[in-house]
Design a protein around this nucleic acid. Sequence first.
DNA 1: CCTGTTACTTAGCATAAACGTA
DNA 2: TACGTTTATGCTAAGTAACAGG
Length: 634
Amino acid sequence: MGTAEITNKLCFGTFYNGLTDCVNHLLCKMSCFCAAVLISQKPKKEEAEHPVTTKKKSKEEIEAAKALKIKKKEEEEQQRWRWWEEDKYEDGVKWKFLEHRGPFFPPEYQHLPDNVNFYYNGKVVKLGLAAEEVALFFAQMLDHEYTTKDVFRNNFFKDWRKEMTLEERVLISDLNKCDFRELHTMHKEKVEARKAMSKEEKLVMKEANQKIVEEYGFCILDHHRERIGNFKIEPPGLFRGRGEHPKQGMLKKRIQSEHEWLPPAGHHWKEVRHDNTVTWLASWTENVQGSCKYVMLNPSSKLKGEKDWEKYEVARRLKSCVNGIRQQYQQDIKSKQMETRQRAVALYFIDKLALRAGNEKEEGETADTVGCCSLRVEHITLHDLLEDKECVVEFDFLGKDCIRYYNKVPVTKRVFKNLTLFMKNKEPGDDLFDRLNTCLLNKHLSSLLPGLTAKVFRTFNASITLQEQLQQLSNMTDNPAEKLLSYNRANRAVAVLCNHQRVPPKTFDQSMAILQSKIDGRREQLALAKSELKLAKKEVKAHSSDSKLQAVVERKKKAVQRCEEQLMKMEVQATNREENKQIALGTSKLNYLDPRISVAWCKNMEVPLDKIYNKSQRDKFAWAVDMTGADFIF
DNA sequence: CCTGTTACTTAGCATAAACGTA
DNA sequence: TACGTTTATGCTAAGTAACAGG
């Protein structure tokens, strides 16, 4: 113990990676160190163990609870690490001191109960642990459409057979003869049972989870306690990529642990690394795509926040020189160099339409999706004239996550002519920009402005759109509900620009109908209240200046007003929800919109910040909340 | 250059938790 | 208080982009 700069990187790999003496040595240090972390957390655990009183709360108690909440909030605020007020480290250094408990591993698989059976060809087959676990993965998914897809089934079956014993493999040769129904039923029952748990049981579960979070969910980074984002190792399961993924159904293997004797969790690390130029705490290699996965900090952390802040600063730098850049690419479209022309047209799209860069991908390894630089001839159609507009480009392609991008865009004559040229003598499957890739494009961009890459345009255009839309749509004289509607509409304009879509919730129509009927009910109520008010007024006139009747009128007036407000609120809500049907606002809010624009807007419009940002969003954007005044301009 | 690797951000969906209402 | 709906969170896939090394 006491050795200063120890634990930092724990890379754990497959079981077969050998341990060197050196790593072993480091590991010992590690475990001592973890013990220390555990001890330091003990007092908090005791606090959590207070018995829960179920008696009814009196008014005083409710008041006290409220006060406690406020106090807690203040305390939290005081404890917050205001890293944005500190000096930055020298280039590349991400931290000077880091301690953590290592990642949390999922529980080992337990055999099925004896009465739950897998059948092959109508006969009970008792599977070994490995094959049974994978069978259960499939059984759990039986309700999903993709267990009917050939690619999914074939990939699954191939990988499943690899997990079988020789005997099992000889016997089980046809997936269609497999009957997983009992496993599926058991799984469904388990889910139901979990739902039906009593309050007390749920509380016990919750506390157990909190204990894990307390133990594994935090690290100490440069003397501050920071939340870790994904401290849990991904459990094994069947890979389901998005869209028509060629690897769907493949087995995502358990990240291997071994050597039971090794404290604390019985895992050994492939390597323990001390590298303060990176931000991850642990990493492993995933077997389906062969890619690396990382344990990293929560968005509220310094490491993430600082990067985020910097991202928006680069975007603001682009704002100050974007006119020049635009002029230049308009010029470049006329260049004699084909490469330059392609680059200019691609940049025109990226800037105008907020397209993603479009890196090349290995064919057959992932679903077929594209971005700007990887567009193919088949993804666009040129129209000299379409719906009264000249020079229209019709885009139709699958982008990230297989989300369809469909757009009809009028472009300049010059761009249109160039596109015609780029498509000449090409097959539909050929690259539109055959002389261009993201590397080339980004090299050019960084020569225009240090730090400038293709994705900066998306950030810049998203943020500037929000700012302009807020300016246009919102009025100080609006009521709070209208102000929020304006904010959401501005946010929506960005989401549309960035093509952030979602499938409408299954219950959308139903919940819309419910809201509508509530609105209708409230309308009737309002009409009633109004006529009652009229009546009351008449009464007053008849028996002039009776103070009692006067009070009745006042009361009725208030009732009408209240009713109007509520109706208005619901109507706004309905509009907002309808407009949001297929659009996801979260992604742009979290990743593309400079939070300072929203903070400043809230201040100017006198809208409480928590109407715009929930708790975790406020935590993520704490730097912006703290430093932004009403005068901020992106 | 090209190709593979590494590190990091961005993405939508499923599920859990919170909330409002009968 | 229970229930159904709405909102927040967790999960992990899928991108971007820099870099190393041939």
